[in-house]
Computed example of a mutant assay.
Amino acid sequence: MNQSSMNAILIFTAYGPPSAVNTFFFILTFLVYLITILANLFLALVIIMEPSLQKPMYVFMLHLAINGVIGSTSVCPKIMDLLISSTKESSYEGCLGQVFFINFYASSAYAILTAMAYDRYVSICKPLQYHTIMTSGKVKQLVFVIYFFPITALSTQVYLTSKLPLCKNNINKLFCDNLAIVNLSCVKSNLGNIFGIFIIIFLVVLPLILVVISYIKILAVCLKTSKDAQKKALSTCTPHLITFVNFSIASLFSVIYNRFNDYIPSHVNFFMSLHFILLPPLLHPLIYGIRTLEIRKCIAKILRKRENHSVADYSLKFRTLAEQSGWNETSLLVNFRHELNPRIQAELQYQGEALESMQIYPHQMVVPVEYQDPQEVFSKEQAVVLPAHRP
């Protein structure tokens, strides 16, 4: 970075003075940002904690959620600060850092979606070879490529931009982007322009072509299969396809925003700029959470675990209730039935004799296996024995 630009302060002119409108947009941005962070972190935790989701598709989904957190965090805190601050300023180094992370978010998202399209292609077009092709080593290689090329290319781009001398310091945008900083320069860099075109082709156009080719081949295979196979393929590909189309539309809005923001009304300018940063990371976990059956099952499983008691908790509570009831046999049966899983309670309505067949001895209570909570991990050959600890 040249010495004259090193200490430069950039001023954002798109915000205007603090007002009620700015406060409204601050609250809106904060709420969307908060929901985005929570939704993506929740999806990431579900994938990490659930062993059944340790598959290539969900590994890529995990990285897409992390990428969404990076993208929204690179912009939203600074926008919220500028909305309520009396000084609409940013350091030149901070602006370059924002440029890097925004572009990293966009290019990595396209790379992840391309890897997911490849995974779907192998799964549908080469099902018998899927586990041979999509090995853990292959997934790690794809993840490495997803991050290596964007980091390398974008670091070079930011370095080339930082070498340009600045003649102006006013940016008529809500956040920094590479084109806005280049337009502040006194000179034009042919090398920077050529490298920028290379980045667009390599990190945007090429992934787009690969995804389209993948879905053309998937469609060709699906047309030759049965209706049930077509429905299964459609349910598998729909979340990814919706996510890819959503992100592509957001990217198109970003291009329009970057090229024509001087001619767009301020409130439209605000929504178009945030659409690219906020909506895709917000919608991606919601789309996958709603449309992906395995994700829904795992979320329901986690929620059920929070509602269920562990064996230790149940045993302690049972002993406490037993002492309070004076070890009354009828009271113990009622309390035991109350603590059963709701599904088993419903079954007992049709099997009234089941509880009557349970044996309660003075010194122990044996709970048959069929009445155990199915969410708990037990051996099917064993029963839960609750010592009476009777005085």
Rank of each mutant, 00 (worst) to 15 (best):
T320Q: 15
I360F: 08
L283Y: 07
F198Y: 05
T73E: 00
I171F: 00
V46R: 02
I249T: 12
Q351R: 11
L184N: 11
L62I: 08
G192T: 02
T156R: 01
L142N: 06
N172P: 06
A111G: 05
T29N: 07
L355T: 14
V187P: 12
T87P: 08
N269I: 05
F148Y: 11
M61T: 10
I360E: 13
F12H: 03
E329T: 12
A229P: 07
L355A: 14
D373A: 10
I11M: 07
A312V: 14
P51M: 15
M6K: 07
Y159Q: 09
Y263N: 10
P77R: 12
S136H: 11
M358G: 04
Y110R: 05
F60L: 06
K163V: 09
V145P: 00
I344L: 09
G192M: 05
L321Q: 11
L279Y: 04
F42Y: 14
R390C: 14
I295V: 13
I47Y: 03
L386P: 11
I201Q: 00
F104S: 07
A14Q: 12
V182H: 01
T13L: 04
F247M: 13
E356Q: 10
P239R: 11
I199Q: 07
G97S: 08
T238L: 14
E381F: 08
G289C: 08
K126P: 02
I218V: 09
K297M: 10
A111T: 00
I194N: 08
V182Y: 02
D373F: 05
S315F: 12
M49C: 05
P368K: 05
S162G: 10
I302L: 15
L34N: 06
I102E: 00
V143R: 09
K168G: 11
L82S: 06
L234M: 09
